[in-house]
Design a protein around this nucleic acid. Structure first.
Length: 240
DNA sequence: GCGACAG
DNA sequence: ATCTTGTCGC
């Protein structure tokens, strides 16, 4: 799929916050998705002392959850990690990885929050809006919001609130295990998002999509190691 | 002013 | 996120 970073992409935290304020109204939190036959997991990792961002995307069949395609992209890291501004650090590399995909996924599961964010534009919401695909935020910890106690059994969940609104759900994806923070990204409701996350999580705490993307973006991988990009065009030909 | 704070 | 070995519990 062909994608590219918008021309007005922010360079400073101030500009990033301003863009979030501008885009928040464009997020759709009601269901607008077709039949889901493929689900993609997206994750990011860092190498070279954090100077290089590695984005990975894994497309799985649904509901079989078998790997269909995966892509990895390396991009120089250009934005620091600032709580609330995660998308500006990770989205650039993610868009490159997604653009390399032959299979256009029907749904995106992202590491991080969807609208469970101070300005309702976490990375999952922002990414979904940019690529115009349904997306769900699947975070391993809380950014903002409060919630009641959560029963220990798999499948139980309680709403995540911020002021007077429900911004997401705290979901037990596995019995007696730390919960997941689920929220709508774009073009999907919270109820539907929870249902998909559970269907993508048959055995472990994290969805199969995320587990695949995690492994591909992680530093200690076993399989084929795609060489980090050479930025100085000094790619020498060892064979003359 | 103080504490919280996705990855 | 990343640095890193073994270890406790279902």
């Amino acid at each position: 799929m062909k994608l590219s970073l918008p021309p007005d992409w922010p360079t400073t935290p101030q500009a990033a916050i301003a863009l979030q304020q501008k885009l928040r109204s464009q997020i759709e939190t009601s269901d607008r998705l077709g039949s889901v036959h493929t689900v993609a997991g997206v994750d990011v990792g860092f190498t070279e002392a954090g100077t290089v961002t590695r984005a990975a995307v894994a497309v799985l069949s649904f509901p079989a959850l078998q790997l269909v395609e995966s892509q990895i992209a390396y991009q120089p890291t250009t934005f620091p990690y600032i709580p609330g501004l995660l998308s500006f650090r990770e989205v650039p590399a993610i868009l490159v990885a997604l653009s390399q995909l032959q299979t256009q996924p029907d749904l995106l599961l992202c590491d991080g929050q969807g609208i469970a964010h101070p300005r309702r534009l976490g990375i999952a919401a922002h990414l979904g809006l940019l690529v115009d695909l349904p997306s769900i935020g699947v975070a391993k910890s809380r950014l903002t919001g409060t919630h009641a106690e959560l029963p220990p059994e798999k499948g139980s969940w309680v709403p995540l609130h911020d002021r007077n609104e429900t911004i997401g759900a705290v979901l037990r994806s596995r019995t007696n295990t730390q919960p997941l923070y689920i929220s709508s990204g774009h073009r999907i409701s919270l109820e539907t998002a929870i249902a998909y996350v559970l269907q993508c999580t048959p055995k472990y705490r994290l969805p199969e999509t995320t587990r695949w993307a995690d492994k591909l973006a992680s530093n200690r991988r076993s399989g084929p190691q795609s060489p980090p990009p050479c930025h100085n065009n000094q790619q020498m030909n060892l064979f003359g």
